[in-house]
Design a protein around this nucleic acid. Structure first.
Length: 790
RNA sequence: UGAGGAGUGGUGAAACGGCAUCACACCUGGCUCUGGACCAGGCUUUCCAGGUUCGAAUCCUGGCUCCUCAGCCA
């Protein structure tokens, strides 16, 4: 479980796939791409990658790997004004560090500029694109609003020749920025704003970080992205939810320029993490305003920051696997990330001792000058690893200030006056005397005795009375600076700000606490930068990659250990003021919805009836003559096709109530986007099906089976019934045998049922129904089932 | 008041008409030379209202709430 990537199960054999893998699997099964799976991760090189990108990287590269495909790394570099080679390099380093490999599939949209230009020309020739000469402001006005349709540009009707000429001259640099723009001929009245003549190419006299001054026109995302996908033969183009509306352009463009099988776009919910921000703009702001020490500040959610903080690629991948992927907007709590990191580090970080806030201990019965070298394992018993080092014990040692209490609370397991505690991998000491600073009254030294026989001895009896604490020899300790990091913001959602405030007002003033004069066990004196350890009873730490050197050690706290010690926790730990309780989100959703009058009708159907006297009349008839409920009558009379279907069916079999229910529920459900006329059965067929039920020829359950076949277009009701033998009924003996077989197949469930889990009756019923094709009738099945189960 | 999405414990997900499941968090207890890890147990869930069905988180109808879209950013 620690490394889900190492041996990914073949997705075909796995259940509970996320919706994206389900789609890929489906496409593979039906052979849409001949078994090819090509995904892509398409960053724009205008900033650093963050943990949200990590989710996307794990998804795209993960899917490719699991399905035996490839994932391209493509830089969507179509905006010369913000992009830079340094970002390209940083992004490649981050993706690689996360453990993914794009093989030789490194691409740049900027390499496609010539081909993209040709596609634009083709669109113009096909009269599907035109050069618009409206100003930026005019374009905005012509676009309309979400409530009002837009207006067509007066330049929309330019001739192909004129468009071609203008577009060529745009490229040639004859016009200043903004003078003209290439647009697709969408639909200015489209309800989807994205389709109101989307912008394809803009003039931008700017130097591109890769193409220099080769171009002065640049493709827009909506144009470059789908075409780049198609050029690369991408199969599944996976992006975040905010691009859902853009999919219309994606499809429009590719349908016009590429035959199937062409790429298709799917969207998932981007990651939101509590207590941090994820937008590039805000991250950039933190860096530029010096609110953090750079993109790789260990408090930043950037990959670079997490790496410097000490997070592992394996831990991040584990996190990504655990949060899964869906289309619901969500906020993941920090604990999920932190636990994944801990889970990974637990098995790979050797245990060492560090005293962060030293308190001197003199062991009075230990000879001055004597050094005992004690063997101390690097790993606890439960970790399957070998290795140990020798630790020097001397008369003067340091322990953690927080491991001593003069007036301990109940349940205290550390040192207290007159009490005993084990020095880890060493002797038990007893606190005999407390030395205080006469001026301040604070404890400055403990005078203790040690028990020379204590190795192997227990400090506690049945219930533990004390724990074992870390220590270092005063004469041997290596000094270090230790940086304790905490969450960057004080609130779960820093972007949720009241009037007049910004997310920066939620910055945690105590997000870093720098401790100097920390003392580490001597072996750490030469710890190489980037090395990770568990400082026993503190947490996981890493020698800072940038600042730590032998002789001037600097450690970053990656993550604290879980701490189940409750009493006095707030005072004892390094945590900044405990984060305020997270306010309940989506409070509106928790509210009871106002009661709605039952049977309210739909406005569109009411309007349809208002405009169609026949429908209105039928609504009245259905209620008063046929005795249907107003809701049912409403559903049936909102559309002439539905009403006609129903009328035709009732004419064949006059059980209005049953036919209405079948029409409103099963037929509507079975439509799946089709219209009634596209159905492969007639109203008379449906009527016949209902008649078979009413006659007692088949059960309702069997009728559902028959209906499924009818939807699939494989015959008339009677034929299906005959073919499946559904009218044969089931003898008592046959039913009994079927039930016995089902129960015999799941003895554990039977036992649970008898033990009181009666909700299992549905499971048994379902199994028997399935086994008998619904011939028996659920009441009979359940009755007999109950008798057999006692 | 348009279009497109989405609502399952505190958090993220699963269940594809039949057992509401998993991970994290939280609470007990056990074990421990880390108040870690581990082990055992527990706590909490289908947005609302109708309907269909023997049976609904799932299907039908209506409602509510949230997110996205009116950049020559991506």
């Amino acid at each position: 479980m620690l490394n889900p990537e190492s041996n990914p199960p073949a997705p075909e054999d796995r259940e509970n796939l996320d919706f994206l893998r389900e789609i890929v699997k489906r496409d593979n099964l039906c052979g849409l791409y001949g078994g090819r799976v090509v995904t892509r991760f398409p960053p724009e090189p205008n900033g650093y990658l963050h943990i949200g990108h990590a989710k996307s990287i794990c998804l795209n590269f993960g899917i490719a790997r699991e399905f035996g495909g490839v994932c391209h790394l493509r830089f969507d570099d179509t905006n010369p004004e913000t992009e830079d080679m340094k970002y390209v390099e940083a992004i490649m380093r981050d993706v690689r560090w996360l453990g993914f490999d794009w093989q030789d599939k490194l691409f740049f949209a900027s390499d496609y500029y010539e081909r993209l230009y040709e596609f634009a020309v083709r669109l113009i020739k096909d009269r599907k694109a035109y050069v618009d000469s409206l100003s930026e402001e005019e374009i905005r006005q012509y676009r309309g609003t979400v409530m009002e349709p837009g207006r067509e540009s007066p330049y929309r009707s330019r001739s192909v020749e004129e468009n071609l000429d203008l577009f060529a001259r745009m490229r040639a640099g004859e016009f200043p920025d903004g003078a003209h723009i290439l647009r697709a001929k969408g639909d200015m009245g489209a309800r989807n704003m994205k389709m109101r003549d989307p912008l394809l190419y803009r003039i931008r006299h700017a130097t591109h970080y890769r193409r220099g001054d080769d171009w002065c026109i640049y493709p827009m995302y909506d144009f470059a992205h789908p075409l780049s996908d198609a050029i690369e033969n991408v199969t599944h183009s996976i992006c975040t939810l905010e691009f859902e509306n853009n999919r219309a352009i994606y499809d429009w463009l590719l349908d016009n320029l590429f035959p199937e099988p062409r790429p298709h776009q799917y969207e998932f919910a981007r990651l939101n993490l509590d207590f941090t921000v994820m937008s590039k703009r805000k991250l950039l702001q933190l860096v530029e305003e010096g609110l953090v020490a750079g993109w790789d500040d260990p408090r930043m959610p950037t990959i670079a920051g997490l790496r410097r903080r000490g997070y592992t690629p394996e831990g991040i991948r584990l996190f990504a696997a655990r949060i899964g992927v869906d289309k619901a907007n969500s906020r993941v709590s920090m604990e999920l990330l932190e636990d994944a990191i801990r889970d990974d580090l637990n098995a790979r970080a050797p245990r060492v001792m560090a005293v962060l806030r030293p308190l001197k201990v003199t062991i009075t019965n230990y000879p001055a000058g004597k050094v005992d070298w004690l063997d101390a394992p690097y790993w606890p018993r439960d970790i399957d690893k070998e290795g140990s080092r020798l630790l020097p014990l001397t008369r003067e040692v340091y322990i953690e200030r927080t491991d001593f209490s003069e007036n301990p609370p109940a349940g205290w397991m550390r040192l207290q006056p007159g009490g005993e505690v084990r020095l880890l991998s060493s002797y038990i000491i007893r606190c005999e005397e407390i030395v205080k600073d006469p001026a301040t009254g604070s404890v400055i030294e403990l005078r203790c005795t040690y028990d020379p026989d204590s190795p192997g001895k227990s400090t506690g009896t049945k219930r533990r009375k004390s724990t074992a604490i870390q220590w270092v020899s005063a004469a041997h300790a290596a000094p270090a600076e230790v940086r304790l990091y905490d969450r960057l913001f004080t609130v779960a959602d820093p972007e949720d700000v009241p009037e007049g405030k910004t997310f920066k007002d939620h910055l945690n003033p105590d997000s870093v606490n720098i401790l100097r004069g920390c003392l580490l066990e001597p072996g750490l004196a030469n710890a190489p930068a980037g090395e990770r350890f568990q400082f026993v009873r503190h947490g996981y730490f890493i020698a800072d990659a940038a600042d730590s050197r032998p002789g001037a050690l600097v450690f970053n706290r990656i993550i604290e250990l879980r701490d189940t010690y409750k009493a006095g926790k707030g005072a004892e730990t390094d945590k900044a003021a405990a984060a305020p309780a997270k306010p309940a989100r989506r409070p509106e959703e928790r509210k009871e919805a106002a009661p709605v009058a039952a049977g309210r009708t739909s406005d569109v159907r009411a309007r349809a009836r208002a405009a169609n006297a026949s429908l209105a009349r039928r609504y009245e008839d259905y209620v008063s003559v046929l005795g249907l409920s107003p809701e049912l009558a409403d559903v049936l009379t909102g559309d002439a096709a539905v009403a006609d279907f129903f009328d035709a069916a009732v004419a064949v079999h006059p059980n209005a109530r049953a036919v209405a229910n079948w029409t409103a529920n099963e037929v509507m459900s079975g439509l799946k986007g089709r219209t009634l006329s596209e159905l492969s059965f007639t109203p008379a067929d449906l009527a016949e099906l209902v008649r078979l039920i009413d006659q007692g020829t088949i059960t309702t359950a069997a009728a559902k089976t028959v209906f499924g076949e009818m939807l699939a277009g494989v015959g008339k009701p009677q034929e299906i019934v005959a073919r499946l033998g559904l009218d044969k009924g089931l003898s008592d003996a046959e039913l009994s045998a079927a039930i016995d077989a089902v129960l015999a197949a799941m003895p554990d469930k039977v036992e649970q049922y008898r033990a009181g889990k009666t909700s299992l009756l549905g499971l048994f019923t379902g199994q028997v129904m399935r086994a008998t094709g619904g011939k028996a009738g659920p009441q009979a099945v359940q009755e007999l089932l109950k008798r057999k189960l006692g």
